[in-house]
Amino acid sequence: MFKEIVNIISLWALPFIILTILTVAVIKKVPVYETFIDGAKNGVKTGISIFPYLVAIIVAISMLRASGIIDCCADICSGLLDRIHIPADIIPLTIVRSLSGSAAIGVFSDIVANNDINSYTSKLAAIMMGSSETTFYVLTVYFGAVGIKKYRYALLTGICADIVGIVMSVVVARVFFC
């Protein structure tokens, strides 16, 4: 029941929003096509201005992943974290999650493929995955779009929020699924 409602919401969210916006606009006699083009022009401009920032961060993070240091860190941490009931498989996810969205999806798929899908590890990974965003990507894209060079405390806030998210995931997962 609940599952069906959720599925319906996910399926309808986007079409519904587009439908509402267009219908209201037509009722109010807004020239929808011209207005769309007018607004869309800014998209190209913004996209190009973000590009250098995107290349800078994506290349740096690709290099970091290729060097194997993330796996190495995971190995070092695993013994320690096992003791507080964080499965070793989760560790790469905690590191990759804030760096790269596509990599995180890859790691997550890997975790659920290699563990029992209904296990505590899979659930914990799912919660972690669903409750966080790719901090570095968001930071780069949003600030890149407007040419901000001094991030001040923005990165610190993002990382702290990620840590809160990781800790909370473990706590909540234990309460619900242990």
């Binding site: 807004v30 207005t35 607004g39 998209g43 590009f51």
Partner: peptide
Amino acid sequence: IGLTLTAIMTFWLGIMKIAEKS
């Protein structure tokens, strides 16, 4: 990512403009 993002952004900024005007 850059091209996809640009295209998606173009689309949504268009839709947003309509939402704004209405």
